[in-house]
Design a protein around this nucleic acid. Structure first.
Length: 587
RNA sequence: GUACCCAUAGCUCAGCUGGAUAGAGCAUUAGAUUGCGGAUCUAAAGGUCGGAGGUUCGAAUCCUCUUGGGUACACCA
C-alpha cells in the first residue's frame, strides 16, 4: 500500500505543478501546501481520497473544479493507468488503486518473513527498560495489578516488535511500614500458623494478616507506633524481625509468582526494594553533602521543590529510615549501572504522577544525565460499575478469584458447545480462552483513561472480545488444515483474482498492519493494536461468512483465497501475541 | 485552594497529523445454516460529540472560558 500511496502522492504533485504553471501561479507556493491522503468513508468510493480544499485558496478555484482537473490529468497519464484510476467526487479526488500490486507484495512479504510480518526496525538500537507490576508483599494481586501487568507486558512486546532491545523489570515492594503491618499482626495473632496448615494460597494468607492489622489498629491507637518501631528494628537488622520478614515475604512472593505463571507474566530481572533502599539513602546523603538537599534541626532530610511548585519533599525521616521516593532514587541509579538504557518506562497508575515528577526532578538535580530518559507511562484506575474498588468495603476484585471464575466460565462454554472432545486439553484451552478474554478486555482501553470493569461483560465471549479473535483464528486454522488434508494445493495463488469488495478491504487492512505496530510502539499504546485487530477480524468474518474458499469457483481462485487466509492468520497470530491473547488452533 | 487527567448512543469503548452522512460491542427488535466451526453474519432503532465562545473554507479533534467527575498535593507505598 505504501508504494501506491507514494506513487500517487508524487503523481498528484506533478499534476498540481503543471496546473500551477499553466495558470501562472507560484509553483513553490503550491508545494508548501501538504497533500492529504486518506481513506474514503465508503469503500465504493475508492481506496485513497485526496481533499482539494487546501489548494482552493492558492488556485483561486473551487475544490470540485480542481478535483475534476486532476482526474482528467490522471486519465491521460498512461503510466498512471497501471497504478489505478482517479476520479473526482465533488471536492475529492478518489483513487481506486491497482490493488494486485499490493496483494503480490503482501503475500510475498508474509511468505518470506515466516510470522514476523508486522515487526519493524523503527526502534532498532533503542535500549528500553520497562518496569511494571511492582507488587507489595503484604497482600495478593488485585484487578489493578492485572491492568498494570497487561499493559506492561504488551508494551514490552510491542517495543520489541519494533526492533527495540527491551528489558522487563519488576520491583518488589518488600519493605516499609505497610509490610511491617502484616508482620506485626502475624506476630500477635499468627500463633505459628502457615499457609500449609491453613490450606490457603500463601499470598492470600499474608494478606489476611494485613486486614487483621487494620481491624486491630482501629481499636489500638498505639498500633502505628509499634509498626514504626518494627520498621526501625528491621532497618537495624534485628535478627528476629528479619527472620519473620523473610518468612512472610517468601509466602507472599511465592503466591504472587504463581499468579504471574497463570497470566504469562515474565521478567528479565527482579529488583527488591529491600536491597535498593540503602543505595537511595546513600544518594540522598551525597546530595546533602553537595548542598542540594537540606537537613533540619530534628534530623529530617528534605529537598526544596518550591521553585517548581512541588513544595518540600522529605527524603529521610528524622530517625533515618527511608521513604518510598528514597528507594526509587536508589533503584533508578542501580538500574542504570546494571543496564545503561536509552529509556526507562515506569508503568504505574496515574495517581502517582506527582511522585514521578518529583523523582525525575531529584535525579536530574543529582546530576544524572539520563534523568530526562525516564518516562512515567501513566494509566487510569479500574473501577467497577458500582464505582471505585474499596478495600474497606471488600469490593476489591482479587486477581486469582477473577481468573478462576473466567476459567470456570470458559470451561462451561466449551462443554455447552459440545466441543469438550474436540479440544486437545479442556483445562489448557479454558485457561487460554480466559486469559485471552482478560487481556483483551484490559487492553482495548487507552491506558491513560480510567476504565470500568464490568465482571459480567468481561466474562462474555461474544462480540468485541478476546475469544472472538481466538474463534476466528481457530476457524481459519481449521480451514487451512482441511485444505492441506484434502491435498487441494493446486495452481499458485494469483492476487489479481481477489477482486471482491470484501477481499479488497481485507487486503488493504492487512497491508496496513505494520503501520499499526509502529504507531502502537510510538504511542506506547496496546489499544491501537486491539482496535486494529478487531476491525480486521470483523472484515475477515464477513469474508469468511459470505465467500466460499475451499469451494471457490476455480482451483486457482481457491488457492488465492487460501493465500489470503494464510496472510490473515499470520497477522492475527502476530497481533494476538502482542496483546497476550493465546492463539488457538482449536477451541 | 493549586496542579494534572477525563467527558462521544441506555451501558462499555473507537475515532490517525482538523476533512465527505461521527463508528463498534453489549442490551432491544427483525432476519440468515443443502459452504469452509452459529463463540458467526445481516439489518433496524439509538447522537444538539457536557455547555458557551473563538481559529478555519471545514472542528468530536486546535485555543479560551465554563460545568460535571476523577486523582494528587504525607516523615504511606
Amino acid at each position: 500500500m505504501d508504494i501506491l500511496k507514494q506513487f500517487w502522492s508524487e503523481r498528484l504533485r506533478t499534476y498540481l505543478d503543471q496546473m500551477a504553471r499553466t495558470r501562472g501561479i507560484d509553483a513553490a507556493g503550491v508545494k508548501e501546501v501538504s497533500l492529504i491522503l486518506q481513506r474514503p468513508p465508503k469503500p465504493e468510493l475508492g481506496d485513497l481520497a485526496v481533499p482539494m480544499f487546501p489548494f482552493a485558496k492558492m488556485f483561486r478555484a473551487a475544490p470540485p473544479l480542481l478535483a475534476a482537473e486532476i482526474a482528467e490529468f490522471a486519465g491521460e497519464d498512461a503510466e498512471a493507468a497501471s497504478w489505478g484510476t482517479a476520479q473526482a467526487d465533488g471536492p475529492y479526488v478518489n483513487i481506486r488503486v491497482n490493488l494486485a500490486r499490493v496483494t503480490e507484495s503482501l503475500f510475498a512479504d508474509i511468505r518470506s518473513r515466516e510470522g514476523s510480518y508486522g515487526s519493524s526496525e523503527s526502534l532498532a538500537g533503542n535500549r528500553v527498560m520497562i518496569e511494571f507490576s511492582c507488587p507489595n508483599t503484604n497482600k495478593p494481586l488485585h484487578l489493578g495489578h492485572l491492568r498494570n501487568d497487561s499493559i506492561g507486558a504488551s508494551v514490552a512486546r510491542i517495543l520489541k516488535a519494533n526492533g527495540a532491545e527491551v528489558r522487563k523489570v519488576n520491583l518488589i515492594n518488600d519493605r516499609g511500614v505497610h509490610i511491617c503491618k502484616s508482620m506485626l499482626a502475624y506476630l500477635k495473632f499468627g500463633q505459628g500458623r502457615s499457609p500449609e496448615s491453613e490450606g490457603v494460597k500463601s499470598d492470600h494468607f499474608v494478606g489476611d494478616y494485613y486486614v487483621k492489622f487494620s481491624q486491630w489498629a482501629r481499636e489500638n491507637p498505639a498500633a502505628e507506633q509499634e509498626v514504626q518501631e518494627m520498621l526501625r528494628n528491621w532497618e537495624q537488622g534485628d535478627e528476629a524481625t528479619v527472620e519473620l520478614w523473610k518468612l512472610m515475604n517468601h509466602w507472599a512472593i511465592e503466591g504472587i509468582e504463581s499468579t504471574y505463571d497463570k497470566t504469562d507474566i515474565v521478567f528479565d530481572q527482579v529488583y527488591y526494594e529491600s536491597s535498593t533502599y540503602a543505595k537511595g539513602r546513600e544518594e540522598v546523603l551525597k546530595g546533602l553533602q553537595s548542598g542540594i538537599f537540606h537537613r533540619d534541626d530534628e534530623g529530617t532530610v528534605w529537598v526544596d521543590l518550591e521553585h517548581i511548585k512541588l513544595g518540600k519533599k522529605v527524603l529521610l525521616r528524622k530517625d533515618g529510615t527511608s521513604l518510598y521516593v528514597t528507594q526509587d532514587i536508589g533503584t533508578a541509579v542501580q538500574r542504570y549501572e546494571d543496564w545503561p538504557f536509552d529509556r526507562l518506562i515506569y508503568v504505574v497508575g496515574s495517581e502517582q504522577q506527582y511522585h514521578f515528577t518529583v523523582l525525575f526532578h531529584i535525579l536530574s538535580q543529582l546530576g544524572y544525565s539520563w534523568a530526562d530518559q525516564l518516562y512515567h507511562l501513566s494509566y487510569g484506575m479500574v473501577n467497577l460499575p458500582e464505582g471505585k474498588m474499596k478495600s474497606r468495603e471488600g469490593t476489591v476484585v482479587d486477581a486469582d478469584d477473577l481468573i478462576d471464575e473466567l476459567e470456570r466460565m470458559a470451561k462451561q462454554e466449551i462443554v455447552e458447545k459440545g466441543r469438550e472432545h474436540e479440544v486437545d486439553d479442556l483445562d489448557n484451552t479454558a485457561e487460554a480462552v480466559a486469559l485471552g478474554a482478560l487481556n483483551y478486555y484490559l487492553l482495548q482501553v487507552t491506558p491513560a483513561k480510567d476504565m470500568v470493569f464490568n465482571p459480567k461483560e468481561s466474562l462474555s465471549f461474544t462480540g468485541n472480545t478476546g475469544p472472538y479473535l481466538q474463534y476466528m483464528g481457530a476457524r481459519i486454522s481449521s480451514m487451512l488444515r482441511k485444505y492441506e488434508a484434502e491435498g487441494l494445493s493446486g495452481p499458485a495463488a494469483d492476487g489479481s483474482l481477489l477482486t471482491l469488495q470484501v477481499e479488497r478491504e481485507l487486503i488493504k487492512m492487512l497491508a496496513g498492519y505494520p503501520d499499526a505496530v509502529v504507531q502502537a510502539g510510538a504511542e506506547l499504546n496496546p489499544s491501537v493494536i486491539a482496535a486494529y485487530l478487531y476491525d480486521l477480524t470483523r472484515v475477515f468474518s464477513r469474508f469468511y461468512h459470505d465467500v466460499p474458499v475451499l469451494r471457490a469457483e476455480t482451483p486457482q481462485l481457491a488457492s488465492s483465497r487460501i493465500e489470503l487466509c494464510r496472510a490473515m492468520r499470520s497477522v492475527l497470530m502476530h497481533a494476538c501475541r502482542l496483546l497476550g491473547i493465546p492463539f488457538l488452533e482449536v477451541m
